[in-house]
Design a binder for these strands. Structure first.
Length: 400
DNA sequence: ACAATGGTCC
DNA sequence: ACTCGGACCATTGTA
């Protein structure tokens, strides 16, 4: 393969090996569990129906069982039965919890195990995704046919699918991910003293935010407080409203507003960054990433409040998400070139926004780890350090 | 074929 | 009453 080949094209052609047996046995396991759940659900409902039909499920839950209607669907064509609603209904009845279990297993089976097996290329025995370079508004790549950027990771059952992604025989998988890159970019853009200090000292950023917002020492921050602080940090990156934050944290909107006020009291630099970024967007009609990619924001002066506020959130998020995308793409090109230059056989296989996955001959592992870390962390000089975490494994789920 | 709904990832 | 960063894809139900 020519060394000058486009980096993402090379990744598409390399593909990634999946353990077909593991996927197929997971699929059978899911199917068995689905049948068991189906029987229990139908027995409790007192009739057979299509659990995957929102319409039929809604009639069972809200008409037959008379469970409280939490919300209607967007186009108010029916009852919402989404995970939020079913979780809440689980307090009152055993059926919704079983439907949730059924849904998550059905998702894993249809979207992942079964679909991925069908995508194994007959000649290479590997899965070759497409990395689309001109799809997203922020400059991220996207992945399709299949999408390998949303392989499950959160749950135990989901990680069984991730564990089916394996290196070729005698090689090993290496994953390198940027730690908190968007918050580090927020520190860079804003110059906020607390945020900058936290990253200069490589502190646990969510624990630090918890300490600041709740006015406590980091040592006494509980896991629950840290979790709330994490939601707040994500909320800042996304330009989250008090409404959304209150929903995410299960608190009143008034409390959410107080959290946000406390945050900005401590992180004044962040507040200024947000205000300046929106102001500049109003003047120019666009926002720009660190490397000069523009995103136009035609609604930034709209008289429609929803549209305008959406544009304002976009104005905050795009420089962060888009710059992160710029930086990892530069690192990818440099790594691809460096592998060729150094005569390394290691291959870059996947990009998942802030993570790169490589397949590495065992003999090259130490060299490749060093090279990847160096090029990713040194991709661009910022006011705070960039940090990369490495994981090595026999598959994509297991680090050792 | 398309809209609506829901769910997976960063 | 509603708001809600960036993607891709499966299923149901209707046209």
């Amino acid at each position: 393969m020519p060394a000058r080949m486009l980096t993402s094209r090379s990744m598409e052609m390399s593909g990634i090996c999946v353990d077909r047996g593991r996927l197929e046995s997971a699929s059978k396991d899911f199917e068995r569990q689905l049948h068991a759940l189906e029987d229990r659900i139908h027995a409790i409902a007192g009739e057979t129906f299509n659990i995957q039909s929102h319409q039929q499920l809604g009639r069972i839950l809200f008409e037959k069982l008379k469970l409280p209607i939490q919300k209607k669907t967007k186009k108010k064509t029916g009852y919402s039965t989404d995970v939020e609603v079913l979780t809440s209904l689980s307090m009152e009845h055993e059926l919704p919890a079983l439907v949730l279990q059924y849904r998550s297993l059905a998702k894993l089976k249809s979207t992942y195990t079964d679909a991925l097996v069908d995508m194994i290329h007959p000649e290479t025995n590997r899965i070759h995704t497409s990395f689309n370079q001109a799809v997203t508004a922020t400059g991220r790549l996207s992945s399709s046919n299949p999408n390998l950027q949303n392989i499950p990771v959160r749950t135990e059952e989901g990680r069984k699918i991730r564990a089916a992604f394996v290196p070729r025989k005698g090689w090993t998988l290496l994953s390198a991910d940027y730690s908190q890159i968007e918050l580090r970019l927020l520190a860079h853009y804003s110059g906020d003293p607390i945020l900058v200090e936290a990253f200069e000292q490589d502190q646990d950023i969510h624990a630090r935010t918890g300490a600041e917002v709740f006015n406590l020492l980091p040592a006494v921050i509980t896991p629950e407080m840290r979790r709330q602080a994490k939601v707040i940090n994500f909320g800042i990156i996304y330009g989250m409203s008090p409404f959304r934050l209150s929903k995410e944290l299960g608190i009143t909107r008034k409390m959410a507003k107080i959290f946000i006020e406390n945050y900005f009291r401590r992180y004044e630099g962040v507040q200024h960054f947000i205000e300046e970024t929106i102001e500049k967007a109003r003047e120019t009609g666009k926002v720009t990433t660190l490397l000069g990619r523009h995103r136009w924001l035609p609604d930034i002066l709209s008289r429609n409040r929803t549209a305008r506020e959406f544009a304002e959130r976009t104005a905050i998020n795009t420089p962060l998400q888009g710059t992160a995308a710029d930086l990892i793409k530069i690192a990818m090109v440099r790594i691809h070139e460096a592998f060729a230059q150094e005569g390394l056989k290691a291959k870059m296989l996947l990009q998942v926004h802030d993570e790169l996955v490589f397949e590495v001959p065992s003999k090259e592992l130490e060299t490749v780890k060093e090279c990847v870390t160096h090029l990713m962390e040194g991709v661009y000089s910022l006011r705070v350090p960039l940090k990369v975490d490495l994981k090595v494994g026999h598959n994509w789920a297991e680090a050792y």
